[in-house]
């Protein structure tokens, strides 16, 4: 695993107090972190809060960060994963409709928006019904396209174990998709 071009240099510059370098690191990783967090939590505002916390911790930890050949994003995803665990442990109640709140803030074509949101909703529901390890693996591998070696670092498992787990996770996801589709289809039928 190697650092993306210039990232090592950016980290060094950030460690010496360069705000521009910190901003570039943020721009490089914020979308991926937000996507991952968004699929793991119920509301957009929570995802934004947790994403913000990831980068607060990044700047707090930069001074002691040492490059050991692992990309910075692996560290950031690991922080995010831990924050999500904390989020659920601290919260005794779960609230807010998944992803539906984003409908109101989107400015694309309403029909396209609805279809897109419904796909997101189905994926969200199906993924959220999986064990946490499966959620992490599928999101990091197939939504964020991270290599198994990097996911292994984030999830603290071996790459071989992850490859074996991947088959089970996909099988479980397929089953959940069926259930979600059946339930949502039934709900639509009831509404008519």
């Amino acid at each position: 695993m190697q650092q993306p071009p210039n990232e090592r240099e950016l980290i060094t510059q950030a460690q010496s107090g360069d705000e521009g370098a910190v901003s570039l690191l943020y721009e490089t990783h914020v979308d991926a972190i937000f996507e991952y967090v968004r699929y793991r939590v119920d509301s957009k505002s929570t995802a934004e809060d947790l994403t913000s916390e990831v980068f607060l911790r990044m700047v707090r930890g930069l001074a002691t960060y040492r490059d050991q050949g692992t990309p910075l994003r692996a560290w950031l995803f690991r922080i995010a994963a831990n924050l999500i665990i904390d989020h659920y442990r601290q919260r005794k109640k779960v609230s807010a409709g998944p992803l539906l709140d984003e409908l109101a803030s989107d400015d694309t074509d309403p029909i396209e928006r609805l279809a897109r949101s419904e796909d997101q909703l189905r994926l969200h529901l199906a993924i959220r019904a999986l064990p946490e390890d499966y959620q992490d693996l599928l999101l990091l591998r197939f939504v964020e396209n991270l290599p198994h070696t990097e996911i292994a670092t984030i999830m603290n498992k071996s790459a071989d174990a992850l490859r074996a787990m991947q088959h089970r996770a996909l099988k479980a996801l397929a089953k959940q998709f069926e259930r979600v589709n059946a339930n949502l289809g039934q709900q639509k039928g009831d509404e008519k």
Binding site: E35, K44, A47, L99, E102, Q120, F142
Partner: peptide, 9 residues
């Protein structure tokens, strides 16, 4: 999975 639009910040 990959065809689903990603949530945007």
């Amino acid at each position: 999975i990959q065809a689903v639009a990603k949530p945007k910040l």
